[in-house]
Structure formats: C-alpha cells, structure tokens
C-alpha cells in the first residue's frame, strides 16, 4: 500500500470542522470518488470530528489518499485525541447509546458508512479512530 497524499489538520473549535470537511471533499474529488460515496465519507468524518470536539476537547486528523496493491484507491482518515477515552466500546458502538443525550448514532453510523472502521481507545489517554473509504466501495 502506498500513501499518495497526506495532511494533518488540527481540530480545536467549531470553525475548524468546515475547513476540515472541505479538505476531505478535496481529497475525495482528487481521486474522482462518486457523489454517493463522497457524501457518505463526509458524513462519517463529520460524526467523528464532532465527537472529538465534544467529548475530547478536540484533537487532530491525519488525511491521506492511499492506494492498495489491488489497485483500490481511497481516502483514509485517522482521528486522534487525548481525551478521556471510551470506557465501554461495545456499548458505544451500539445504535442509540449516548452519554451526551444525543441520538447515539455517530460511531455505529460512521462504521456503516465507510469501508474500513477501526477504533482504539485507552482510558485517560485518548481515542484513535481510523476510517477508510474506497473510491468504489
């Protein structure tokens, strides 16, 4: 697998969300991702970045365009924060579970919207979520 493009964006305030989303859209356009997949990617990205702001006081996102040996091209986003971490991942990944009186759809919804979803968290240390959306997938 090779990384074709890469960029790190700091997320500290609400205004950063729009800037970040535009960058993701730019990356998706660069590899000519279709409108449906692009919207799905943008929406998943939006969920994760909002979680980061809301529960971990911000963090950073690594945006990459990656190309796989099987000739799949895609956008990979790595969200890392140094927040409190998630005590029970299994619960957090369930539809409707929220500690913030919200819909509780962010994490499970994002997982359904992308091709690869990975979450790692350590209590007191932070959370890292990595998502990949293939151009055709």
């Amino acid at each position: 697998m090779i990384v074709l493009n890469k960029d790190t964006i700091k997320i500290e305030k609400e205004q950063d969300v729009v800037f970040f989303r535009n960058r993701v859209a730019e990356y998706a356009d660069k590899i000519k991702m279709g409108l449906v997949n692009k919207t799905k990617l943008l929406t998943a990205a939006s969920e994760l970045v909002r979680n980061m702001l809301r529960y971990a006081n911000g963090g950073k996102v690594l945006c990459e365009i990656i190309s796989h040996a099987t000739l799949q091209t895609g956008v990979r986003l790595t969200f890392s924060d140094q927040g409190p971490g998630i005590p029970d991942i299994e619960k957090a990944m369930q539809d409707g579970y929220s500690t913030g009186k919200s819909l509780g759809l962010g994490l499970p919804g994002a997982k359904r919207l992308v091709s690869i979803f990975d979450i790692k968290t350590q209590l007191g240390k932070g959370t890292t979520v990595t998502i990949t959306k293939w151009k055709n997938g």
């Binding site: 409108l35 449906v36 692009k38 919207t39 799905k40 929406t43 969920e47 539809d95 819909l103 759809l105 499970p108 919804g109 994002a110 359904r112 919207l113």
Partner: peptide, 13 residues
C-alpha cells in the same frame, strides 16, 4: 438529494 437520502439511511437516522 439522493446521496443524502442514502447516507441518512446508513447512518440510521
């Protein structure tokens, strides 16, 4: 829009 409709469904809203 169609792409938004599909996304909303996957998201589970």
């Amino acid at each position: 829009r169609p792409e938004i409709a599909q996304t909303i469904v996957h998201l589970g809203i």
